[in-house]
Design a protein around this nucleic acid. Structure first.
Length: 210
DNA sequence: GACCAGGCACATC
DNA sequence: GATGTGCATGGT
């Protein structure tokens, strides 16, 4: 496999086509989904989101008034529901306090400042912060997840122990700073990961990158 | 029934 | 600073 990130991207795109990410209807829904999907399959997150929608609480003004225990009950299918309810509350408090629950207002803040703010919220780590920045706020940051690392590792393109920033840098220094590109690239890596690079049963022999 | 999934914080050494 | 552990549901 060629290790040039641009060529890898072209290969993935020609194999899978556009992924139309993030699978959420509003920026706020994307933010909530980013927290709910922590170490969790998206199909489970969908059930939790559906519950929130059914109760018509998937808007900042409603969700921030929902008691933590009720919130936990609604997001139960997403797993880790007590912790995630707490994390959503933490994020909501931040979002309401700093930006009045207003996505546009949030969007006006400088990206690196915003990233630091997000990381200071208990329950939001680098991947969740970057997912929010890229997919909810259209900021050009590259999202690194478990699949990204595993794929690069299996192809021998990464030192065994590489932290989040190292991997992120790998992509961001080689690629044009472009929201659309970062969006599609991460989505394509997840697509590849799900189909060919699972932990238990990798299908390396038929991987399109091979 | 075991293993995995689009992480993160916290304890302990 | 590195390494280990808890959190939990639903699909394979």
């Amino acid at each position: 496999m060629n290790h040039n990130p641009v060529l890898i991207y072209k290969k993935l795109y020609s194999s899978f086509g556009p992924q139309h990410w993030w699978p959420g209807q509003t920026p706020f829904e994307v933010m909530v989904g980013a927290i709910l999907t922590q170490n969790t399959s998206w199909s489970n997150v969908e059930k939790a989101i559906a519950n929130l929608k059914k109760k018509k609480v998937l808007i900042p003004e409603k969700l921030c008034r929902l008691p933590e225990n009720k919130l936990a009950k609604l997001i139960k299918p997403a797993g880790y529901y007590n912790i995630k309810a707490r994390r959503l509350r933490n994020f909501l408090n931040f979002f309401m306090d700093h930006y009045k629950g207003n996505v546009k207002k949030m969007s006006k803040t400088d990206t690196s400042v915003l990233r630091k703010e997000l990381l200071s919220v208990n329950g939001i780590g680098p991947e969740t912060a970057d997912s929010i920045l890229l997919y909810a706020l259209n900021k050009p940051v590259f999202v690194v997840d478990a699949y990204t690392k595993r794929i690069l590792l299996r192809h021998g393109l990464l030192p065994e122990k590489s932290d989040y920033g190292f991997v992120q840098n790998l992509f961001m220094r080689e690629l044009k700073t472009d929201v659309k590109l970062f969006n599609e690239y991460h989505a394509l890596l997840v697509k590849l990961g799900k189909e060919f690079c699972r932990k238990g049963k990798p299908k390396c022999e038929v991987c399109p990158l091979k």
